[in-house]
Simulated assay, not measured.
Amino acid sequence: MTDALKRLSDEGVAIWLDDLSRKRITSGNLAELIDQQHVVGVTTNPSIFQKAISQGDGYDTQLTDLAARKVTVEEAIRMITTSDVRDAADILRPVFDATDGQDGRVSIEVDPRLAHNTRATVAEAKQLAWLVDRPNALIKIPATKAGLPAITETIARGISVNVTLIFSLERYRAVMDAYLEGLEKAKAAGLDLSKIQSVASFFVSRVDTETDKRLDAIGTDEAKALKGKAAVANARLAYQAYEEVFSSDRWAALEKAHANKQRPLWASTGVKDPSLKDTMYVEELVAPNTVNTMPEATLEATADHGEITGDKVRGTYEQARADLDALAKLGISYDDIVQVLEDEGVEKFEASWNDLLKSTEAELKRLAPSEG
């Protein structure tokens, strides 16, 4: 079952699971995925935690204690989520040690309501890093315009960061610049750059969802022929940008100080369109020094019938550019698509956070001690 996942790993793709729950931790399932399915990291988000807390009774003991203390809903969420991330980080610690800190990472997201507030995002990142208190934690910061300086300041403090919600090539270059600036500040402050890691989460499937909707509206044969191509083309051109930035003179100076490259991470790799192969965003984005964070269904599909045939990114840049140019010729605006997706992404993260607040509040009320 794991041959395809092993081949993927051997090609330099770190396999991370896009899911976490207390049951997954306590049942031994996470340890099993690490042992048998080549999983070397975990990403989380408010939707994942909302689903975990609202299903089953895995959190009842902690929620009962939190209810007895009459904590706020926000504090309860912080206690619950950082507890899960801390435990997952401990399970992944052997991977972290074996890879010199590159993998074995667990990501936790800043409150998405702070996405447009630089100062509050940095404060939240510091607080989460302190609460989790594990060297293999990654703090997720969205790549909004306000998020960029927050990334720099967080990295400058020696806190490792997973930059999330990247859709456009222009914004991705700004993210890499923010990372390098953060490293330069950390170096000037005398910090050990070898201890700082970062990944840049470039979202994939949503690009096809939005683009293909517009192609369907055009409805011509020419338009239909371009369906399912935009997301992979976009991600491949992102890798080209990564290669350029991390072979620059600016990077060379940081590399001499033992800095780590910020790896591209392919996020949102579950295929939304049933007419596309369910492992497409894994198979078509194989490249060295990348991360693919997968929902469990995508992980299982790849293990079952994934076809990993080597590097599918380098050497494809000309075709990728041609695919995006063909969309422009049909009047489909790349800039509009990526802006719509970023705006929607922030809104979805905020909606998920509000759902998490409601679910947690309901559980605290259910388990609150009766008065008297």
Rank of each mutant, 00 (worst) to 15 (best):
164 T>W: 14
164 T>S: 13
164 T>V: 08
167 F>H: 11
167 F>N: 13
167 F>A: 14
168 S>P: 15
170 E>L: 06
170 E>W: 05
171 R>D: 03
171 R>Q: 11
172 Y>F: 12
172 Y>V: 04
172 Y>C: 06
172 Y>K: 00
172 Y>A: 06
172 Y>H: 09
173 R>C: 05
173 R>T: 02
174 A>T: 00
174 A>I: 00
175 V>R: 03
175 V>D: 10
176 M>V: 01
176 M>R: 05
177 D>N: 06
178 A>Q: 04
178 A>C: 12
180 L>F: 03
180 L>C: 07
181 E>H: 10
181 E>Q: 14
182 G>I: 15
182 G>P: 10
183 L>T: 06
183 L>H: 03
184 E>G: 05
184 E>T: 01
184 E>N: 07
184 E>M: 08
185 K>I: 04
186 A>G: 14
186 A>R: 12
187 K>G: 02
187 K>S: 10
187 K>T: 01
187 K>H: 12
188 A>F: 04
188 A>Y: 03
189 A>T: 11
190 G>C: 12
190 G>L: 12
191 L>P: 00
191 L>W: 07
191 L>S: 06
191 L>V: 00
192 D>K: 07
193 L>S: 05
194 S>A: 11
194 S>Q: 09
195 K>R: 14
195 K>A: 13
195 K>C: 01
196 I>K: 06
196 I>M: 07
197 Q>I: 00
199 V>M: 04
199 V>Y: 01
199 V>P: 00
200 A>N: 05
202 F>E: 01
203 F>T: 00
203 F>R: 10
203 F>G: 05
203 F>Y: 15
203 F>C: 02
204 V>L: 07
204 V>M: 04
204 V>C: 03
205 S>L: 09
205 S>I: 09
206 R>V: 08
207 V>Q: 03
208 D>H: 14
208 D>A: 04
208 D>E: 06
208 D>C: 09
209 T>R: 11
210 E>V: 15
210 E>H: 11
210 E>R: 11
211 T>Y: 10
212 D>A: 08
213 K>N: 15
214 R>K: 15
214 R>L: 14
215 L>A: 11
216 D>R: 11
216 D>V: 01
216 D>C: 06
216 D>M: 10
217 A>V: 06
217 A>C: 08
217 A>W: 11
218 I>D: 15
218 I>H: 15
218 I>L: 15
218 I>V: 02
219 G>L: 12
219 G>Q: 10
220 T>A: 05
220 T>V: 04
220 T>E: 06
221 D>N: 14
222 E>Q: 13
222 E>A: 12
222 E>V: 07
222 E>T: 09
224 K>N: 15
224 K>V: 09
224 K>Q: 10
225 A>P: 15
225 A>V: 14
226 L>I: 02
226 L>H: 10
226 L>S: 11
227 K>P: 04
227 K>N: 08
229 K>S: 15
229 K>E: 14
230 A>Q: 13
230 A>S: 14
231 A>K: 13
231 A>T: 13
232 V>E: 03
233 A>I: 12
233 A>P: 08
234 N>P: 04
234 N>K: 14
234 N>A: 07
235 A>F: 05
235 A>V: 12
235 A>H: 05
235 A>S: 14
235 A>T: 08
237 L>R: 12
237 L>P: 01
237 L>V: 07
237 L>N: 09
240 Q>K: 14
